[in-house]
Amino acid sequence: MPTTEPASRHLTAELQLVRHRGVRKALHLVVLTLGEATGLSGPSVADLVVARRDSGLPVIRTKAGSLDEADALLRTINADLDRFSVEEFLAEWGHLG
């Protein structure tokens, strides 16, 4: 039986920084800096991860985009976690995973 509890009671969302090493790290930094400086979208700075509160297991993981995009996406996801039930939230956002 579906519940009407807010999804935020069962799921949490956070940004997890993308970690690169060596040459990939330097290349990522250059492309990120150019993207931010020109206003064009650069590489994703973080992954948005929606996970179960009880186990910590990810339900959704997706690239969060630039700094501004990541912040906006996290705010939207958190608002929807408070507004929707788990079933409604997954119906709305499940395609990202």
Results as ranks from 00 to 15, higher is better:
Leu48Tyr: 07
Leu29Phe: 10
His10Lys: 11
Ala13Ile: 02
Asp71Arg: 12
Ala70Thr: 02
Asp80Thr: 05
Leu11Lys: 06
Val59Cys: 00
Thr38Ile: 02
Glu36Phe: 09
Ala46Trp: 07
Gly42Gln: 12
Pro6Asn: 09
Val86Cys: 05
Leu11Met: 08
Arg21Tyr: 15
Val49Phe: 03
Ala72Asp: 14
Arg21Pro: 00
Gly35Ala: 08
Glu92Phe: 00
Ser55Phe: 05
Lys25Ala: 13
Asp68Gln: 14
Arg52Gly: 01
Arg9Asp: 15
Lys25Tyr: 06
Ala13Cys: 03
Thr76Leu: 15
Leu34Pro: 03
Glu88Tyr: 01
Leu34Gln: 01
Ser55Pro: 10
Pro6His: 01
Pro2Gln: 08
Ala37Val: 09
Asp80Tyr: 13
Val45Tyr: 03
Ala51Trp: 04
Ala37Phe: 07
Val18Asp: 01
His10Phe: 14
Gly56Phe: 06
Thr33Phe: 06
Ala37Glu: 11
His20Phe: 13
Leu29Trp: 09
His95Ala: 10
Val45Trp: 05
Arg53Pro: 01
Ala64Leu: 07
His95Arg: 14
Leu34Gly: 05
Lys63Asn: 03
Met1Phe: 05
Ser85Ile: 00
Glu36Arg: 12
Gly42Val: 08
Leu11His: 06
Lys63Ser: 10
Ser85Phe: 00
Val86Ala: 04
Phe84Trp: 10
Glu88Pro: 01
Thr12Ser: 09
Asp80Gln: 11
Glu69Gln: 15
Leu40Ser: 08
Ser44Arg: 11
Asp68Tyr: 12
Asp82Gln: 07
Gly42Ala: 14
Leu11Thr: 06
Pro58Ile: 11
Ile60Asp: 01
Ala51Lys: 12
Thr76Arg: 15
Ala13Ser: 09
Ser41Glu: 13
Asp82Lys: 09
Asp71Gln: 11
Pro2Asp: 09
Ser66Leu: 05
Gly65Gln: 07
Leu73Ile: 01
Asp71Leu: 11
Arg83Ala: 15
Thr33Asn: 02
Thr38Val: 07
Phe89Met: 01
Ala7Asp: 00
Trp93Leu: 00
